[in-house]
Computed example of a mutant assay.
Amino acid sequence: MNKAQRTHFVKQTAQECGFEFCGIAKAAKLGEDARRLEAWLNKGMHGTMHYMEKYFELRTDPTKLVPNAKSVITLLKNYYPETSQNTDAPKVSKYAYGNDYHETIKVQLNVFLDRLKASFGEFQGRGFVDSAPVLERAWAEKSGLGWLGKNGMLINKGAGSFYFIATLIVDVELEYDAPLAKDFCGTCTRCIDECPTDAILPNKVVDGSKCISYFTIELKDALLPDDMRPKFDNWLFGCDVCQDVCPWNRFSKPTNDEAFKPIAEILNFTEKDWSDLTEDGFRQIFKHSPLKRSKYKGIMRNLKFIMSEP
Rank of each mutant, 00 (worst) to 15 (best):
residue 127 G to T: 06
residue 195 C to N: 10
residue 233 D to Q: 10
residue 170 V to T: 14
residue 125 G to N: 05
residue 84 S to H: 10
residue 122 E to H: 08
residue 126 R to W: 03
residue 56 F to W: 12
residue 273 D to N: 13
residue 197 T to E: 02
residue 170 V to D: 06
residue 303 L to G: 02
residue 194 E to S: 11
residue 206 V to M: 07
residue 45 M to V: 08
residue 10 V to A: 10
residue 291 L to K: 03
residue 158 G to V: 08
residue 208 G to R: 02
residue 194 E to Y: 09
residue 202 P to K: 05
residue 120 F to Y: 08
residue 305 F to S: 03
residue 206 V to S: 04
residue 199 A to F: 02
residue 137 R to S: 08
residue 82 E to K: 15
residue 107 V to Y: 06
residue 298 G to P: 01
residue 298 G to S: 02
residue 91 K to H: 05
residue 125 G to C: 03
residue 129 V to E: 01
residue 101 Y to E: 08
residue 301 R to L: 00
residue 278 T to H: 02
residue 205 V to Y: 00
residue 102 H to V: 03
residue 65 L to E: 10
residue 67 P to M: 12
residue 171 D to F: 14
residue 258 E to S: 15
residue 261 K to E: 11
residue 102 H to I: 04
residue 17 C to N: 11
residue 294 S to A: 09
residue 187 T to V: 13
residue 206 V to H: 03
residue 86 N to D: 13
residue 226 D to P: 09
residue 145 L to G: 00
residue 281 G to S: 05
residue 215 F to L: 08
residue 145 L to Q: 01
residue 168 L to P: 00
residue 95 Y to T: 08
residue 265 E to I: 03
residue 121 G to L: 11
residue 59 R to P: 00
residue 17 C to M: 13
residue 283 R to F: 14
residue 132 A to W: 10
residue 62 P to F: 04
residue 51 Y to S: 03
residue 141 E to G: 07
residue 201 L to P: 07
residue 256 N to T: 14
residue 277 L to D: 04
residue 64 K to W: 04
residue 147 W to I: 05
residue 54 K to G: 15
residue 181 A to W: 03
residue 30 L to E: 12
residue 187 T to Q: 13
residue 215 F to N: 00
residue 113 L to G: 01
residue 119 S to N: 11
residue 16 E to F: 08
residue 197 T to A: 05
